[in-house]
Computed example of a mutant assay.
Amino acid sequence: MTTTREPGQTLAEFDEHLDELHLRGQWQYDAQLVQLTDGPLPAGVPFLWQRGLAERALEEMCTVRANDTARRNFTFINPGPGVDGTTPTLAMGMQITLPGEIASAHRHSINALRFVVDGSANLYTSVDGERLAMEDSDLIITPAYTWHDHHNESDKRGIWIDILDVPVMGYLRQIFFEPYGSSTQPLRETRADFISSRSSSVRPAWERRDSTRIPFRYAWRDVRAALRDFAGCEGSPFDGVILHYAHPISGGSTLPTIDCFAQLLRPGLQTQRHRHTSSVVYYVVEGEGTTLVGDHRLDWSAGDSFVIPNWMWHQHINHSPSTEAVLFSATDAPLLAALGMYREEPHDSFGTGPYPAVPADVVRGHVTT
């Protein structure tokens, strides 16, 4: 095989020659770079999966037992080319368990969370030995390497949204999986043994502080109450009254690769347009409305799921003059922020607003912005 360029070779012929040497000239990338002057190309397309479609698929899935782990779930696959998930980094789907079923214990390097669609006090997930109830709209996190199994001890079907970072973990070739060896793991016996007990502002002084493998349940009753508390605030011009599911120990992102939010859109609200380098998946908890994404119109109502790809202009609209709309969302922003790649336009919306002023300072004219 020759290792030098032949006289009179065309550029295309030289490219073939470099291919044989497992090399590639920079000029082959130039055409791709030129089209990126406005930022990264969105991966995938905006898309909405209606509640009825999902419910029918779950109903049909109840007649199938594809394996012995009692895991009946599906992933929302983005119809855009080259996306093997809901986004290139996130896989969102739904899972159903029948009364009396146990989804066998295992653990993996994948970060995962469960947002409950149809739950009860007797539907629960065990995470590193902690029993975490799965009631309607609760959020349960299963950080990487935590043992977890799902139990339905109720008399009705349990349904929840699954969101995992499996696409990016697969791309990075970082997937580890380990079955526990039996359907259930041992449970902790006292609250003093619960790792989630360390998430309180009052915690054992003799222990080192840890922020990994923290099992946690964000109860919807607390989240919905907080949304009511902040409903009168101006909130974000792009997302309305949007609250962060902060990590219970660090206060940072919900999981290292996934951040979660609950947002309230007041009656008649039309948010401003913005875009960000992160992709976002949504589940509609309450109400109905529209999200405009580029040239796409996504009309949603309670129980629907939809996706907004990265770097696409979008805005939310609550058409109702009297009813609030509530959305749950998850984003890959922490992953991008860790790489220094997170960006918003027309300007940053998170972490930029001031704290409420001290009343005494307002009276005495000492308020600064």
Rank of each mutant, 00 (worst) to 15 (best):
S196H: 09
L11F: 14
Q32C: 04
R198T: 13
Q28L: 11
P334Y: 07
I163Q: 00
R51M: 09
P88H: 06
L164F: 13
G129R: 01
L58H: 00
R56W: 03
A54G: 10
A219R: 15
A43K: 14
P359E: 11
H247E: 09
G294L: 07
H319G: 10
G181K: 04
S305G: 14
G44V: 02
P359N: 09
P167A: 10
R131S: 02
E324W: 05
P179Y: 03
N152W: 01
E207L: 15
V358P: 02
E189K: 15
P186D: 10
H316M: 08
Y282C: 02
G294T: 06
T184M: 07
F74V: 02
D136Y: 07
M92S: 03
F115I: 11
D15G: 13
V241R: 06
A31M: 06
I161C: 11
G100L: 03
R273M: 12
I317R: 13
Y282V: 01
G252A: 13
L90Y: 01
A219T: 13
Q26H: 08
R273G: 07
Y124H: 15
G365C: 07
T86E: 03
R173L: 11
S349K: 06
V280M: 09
T89S: 13
D138F: 01
R224L: 02
S253K: 05
D304G: 07
L132N: 00
L339F: 12
E16M: 14
T2L: 07
A12Y: 12
S349C: 07
N73T: 03
P354G: 05
P7Q: 07
Y171Q: 14
P334L: 08
D348Y: 07
T254G: 05
N67I: 00
A325P: 02
T277M: 11
L227K: 01
S182Y: 05
F14Q: 13
L90M: 13
V281A: 15
N310P: 06
R275D: 03
Y145G: 02
V280Y: 00
L132S: 00
V285P: 00
L139N: 02
G158K: 01
Q26K: 09
L90I: 14
G82D: 09
I102Q: 00
Q26T: 12
A66G: 04
R24K: 12
M134C: 14
M134W: 00
D162H: 04
S236H: 06
P186C: 10
V281F: 04
A325T: 15
V293E: 01
D118A: 15
F176C: 03
